[in-house]
Amino acid sequence: MIAFIEGPAWYAALTIFVVFSLWRLGWVLLMGGDKHKSPARASAAAGAIRNIFVDLAPRGAFLKRGKVWFVALAGYAFHLGLFAVLLFAAPHVDFIEQKLLGFGWTPMPYWGFIVTAEIAFAGLLLLWIRRFVDPVTRLISRLDDHLAAGLTFIVMLTGCLALGQQSVFLRGLHMGFVELWLVYFPFSSLFHTFTWPLSRGYSGALFGRRGIRA
């Protein structure tokens, strides 16, 4: 079983992830049809770059609202924590070295892992809970948003349960959910991972073109 999960299943999941992600991204990019022809006041490209890479904190006027603080803090806590754990947890670095890239890097220490995982968990939990109890998010959330949050949560949780690295079963469980997550990813709102620079870029280009110091 574990051989299957870590062998064929892993490569199958990875293939689905790559193929359908490319499909979805390609589809969006190839739709075309951007028809701005009016003379620009300033550089659209500069605006896009600004909006993608620089303006990443909520604008001051919105910080009067508690929910903006909440989403920003919990959102960054979750995402930064998740990426730190994903890329720098010792078992992940080993895995990347052995199965993906052939080289690795210095992982974070155990306590660093614990702290970042806790930050990520707190962030995800708070964001997911709000989905249920805030009338706004309750109204607009799709089943997909809950599945995406739930699967990510389970992947993180099984990863932490396997922390002792004593049980093949737990490692397999984690891997199995990672694979499920990878398969679900290209079809779900998890895909914002790849599309956010596009949407921020398009709006940034609009700001740039019109000379809006947004």
Partner: peptide, 14 residues
């Protein structure tokens, strides 16, 4: 592409 990028990015944060 532009409108599609918007549609593909929303995470329903409200």
């Amino acid at each position: 592409s532009r409108a599609a990028s918007y549609m593909e990015s929303c995470v329903r944060c409200g």
